[in-house]
Simulated assay, not measured.
Amino acid sequence: MSKPEVITRLTERQRACLELVAMGFTSKQIARKLGISHSTVDNHILAATQILGVADRREAGRLVSMAGQELPRQAEPLTEHEKSSIVDMQEALQQPRHTGLKLLPPVGGSLNEQSLGNKTIQIVSLAFLSTLAVISMALLISGAFKAFS
């Protein structure tokens, strides 16, 4: 079977997950967008990679994104909320990000979304805060020993 014929065997959810994979989303981000658990997303992607006979999710996502929208739908179509969520995320990815200097680094997000200078500053600030925390704990413990002896 050729790849376009094999792609038609994918369910709508599998295709939706792989389209988002092709856009660079993680399983957790896809799960939030589609309103399902991240393990369900992983199951859809695993099943799709097995159907397509590819090595990994990136290759499967690439194949599905190249196939385009001319493929027939097999499962229930995405709801308007799911479609708008995907469109919103595409628009958000295309907008420039305003990353200011913060005391603590951001948690989560896409890889490499900060410049090297900002990453370095975040690492140094974390090291400084960790050092302050260790010193203050040592002083507290020292004070507690002096108070109880």
Rank of each mutant, 00 (worst) to 15 (best):
A67D: 14
G35I: 01
V41R: 00
A138D: 06
T40Y: 02
I30V: 11
K28I: 15
I121N: 11
A22D: 11
S125N: 09
T26H: 00
R15M: 10
I7L: 04
V124I: 15
G24Y: 01
P106A: 05
S84W: 07
T120W: 10
S37T: 12
A60F: 04
M1P: 15
P105L: 00
A127M: 09
S149A: 01
G109H: 04
I141L: 10
V124M: 11
D56F: 06
E12Y: 00
E91N: 12
S115Y: 07
T40W: 03
A55N: 05
G61Q: 00
N43I: 10
L63S: 01
G68P: 07
P77Q: 05
P106T: 08
L140A: 06
L139M: 07
D88H: 13
P77R: 07
T79S: 08
N118M: 15
L10V: 02
E12I: 02
T120C: 09
G68R: 02
Q94P: 12
S149W: 10
C17N: 04
R73N: 10
A22F: 07
S39I: 13
A67K: 02
A133R: 02
L104G: 03
L104E: 13
P72S: 13
E5W: 01
S136W: 05
Q74T: 13
I135R: 05
S84Q: 15
G35Q: 08
Q90M: 07
I51Q: 05
E113W: 12
K33Y: 00
N118E: 14
L139P: 08
M89K: 05
L104Y: 15
A22W: 05
V41N: 02
K146G: 03
E76A: 14
L20Q: 07
P106E: 08
S84V: 09
E19N: 05
I86W: 00
I45E: 12
R73M: 14
A144G: 09
Q14I: 02
G68Y: 01
I141H: 03
I30N: 00
M89A: 15
Q95R: 11
L140D: 04
Q29W: 00
N118V: 02
G68F: 03
T8Y: 07
S84C: 04
T49A: 05
Q94E: 11
P96S: 08
A92G: 09
L52Q: 09
I7C: 02
A48K: 00
S2D: 11
S125P: 01
A60D: 04
T11E: 06
A22T: 12
D42F: 00
G35L: 01
M137V: 12
M89H: 07
I86A: 12
K102W: 06
A47Q: 11
Q94C: 05
A31M: 03
L103E: 06
T49E: 07
L101H: 09
I7Q: 03
A55D: 15
S65W: 11
H38L: 02
M137S: 10
T49M: 08
Q14Y: 04
N43Y: 08
L93G: 13
L18D: 01
Q95N: 10
E70K: 15
M137H: 02
Q29I: 01
I30Y: 00
R32G: 13
S125G: 05
A55H: 12
G100R: 10
A144I: 15
Q94H: 10
L93I: 09
N118Q: 13
E5S: 11
G108R: 05
L34C: 02
